[in-house]
Design a protein around this nucleic acid. Sequence first.
DNA 1: GTCTATATGACGATAGAC
DNA 2: GTCTATCGTCATATAGAC
Lengths: 207, 207
Amino acid sequence: MSGDKRREQILQTAFDLFSHRGFSGTTTKDIAKSAGVSEAMVFKHFSSKDELYGALVEAKTCNEGFRKYPWEENEAVMTAMEAKDDFGVFYHFALKALNKHQEDIAFMRMIFFSALEGHEIADRFFQTFVGEIYNFLGGYIKTRQKDKVFRKIDPRIIVRAFLGMMIHHSLNNILWDKKRTLLDIPNEEAAKNFAEIILQGVAVQEG
Amino acid sequence: MSGDKRREQILQTAFDLFSHRGFSGTTTKDIAKSAGVSEAMVFKHFSSKDELYGALVEAKTCNEGFRKYPWEENEAVMTAMEAKDDFGVFYHFALKALNKHQEDIAFMRMIFFSALEGHEIADRFFQTFVGEIYNFLGGYIKTRQKDKVFRKIDPRIIVRAFLGMMIHHSLNNILWDKKRTLLDIPNEEAAKNFAEIILQGVAVQEG
DNA sequence: GTCTATATGACGATAGAC
DNA sequence: GTCTATCGTCATATAGAC
């Protein structure tokens, strides 16, 4: 196998293991074995376990998956936003996010492990990626507040409440309620309910 | 030091370290050193690292801290519930939970680490403790739906949305946004806003 | 109840052959 | 590009003295 191809394969294997067991719970021997190579090969491509992990998180946060925000490649959100279709904005945003979480459980686990284990790369991810989401949704909320459609609440609180519903729901499914004994609903229904609750919750009330 | 006292001290020390670095990130040597004893002492009290961890999670989930639900020792929630003061119920519940999370960061971290690392004790905690919360809040929500004050949404979705706001908010503060750069508000304000959003969000609308 | 010393193996990482 | 062999260190756990 070529160097680049092998490197990618080791990265992917390492990703699966790190996301499952965390940094200190994964050994270089495990990685080598799963990748079907010797440990020496791993250290030919990455000078240390730390470097391997760093390259991994870097690749996964910057190049793939979560480089795309839930509104990119999601025409529905942008269209709804231009039309000031509030339900469309929040529903499609939530649905995209929930689907993404479900498809990329390994990534979610890796980010949580990084955060718990205190790798500063997790910090950077949150300051950029999550910060950007606060700006994006917060901006729309501000507009709708000026339109006197949403109540005057700190937009960041609304974003936090809304993201909280989605992320907590995904986290429940990934970490604890894998069999969905507590609440087993399709993402469409969850997105619809979350969007309805938040929208009615922040709407200006008549009278 | 007496055996029991020493045992407790080792447990507490281990708790601090495990919650900070996770199971595989913590060594028995670290624990011994932090407790100010030799490693041999640790193994006199606990036959293995696994047993120590098990005893720890058991003690922390069953005997202390989270044995108490957010409505126990919280007269405000029960009083509000009897008076059908919806805002009182949700506000005081949220405030209690947020304060608890903030006071017991170590416990929160330990539970998340356990869940990620797949210790089945975390599962048990969630099925009992969290399940009980769903019953408690869900029961109240059902009552208010019969009163035609809350809309007909699956009560578990409402509980999930509400818990999501709180837990996500606490998790943000604990894991990523420790400096609170994104959103720095007192628990009272967060609880008030979350309660208002969820209540208005699920209220029966006029017309 | 507490320690020092040590057994046994795992872990991260390297050397050097092919 | 890949391997086997190995090194030094650290980890869990035990033995036995005080």
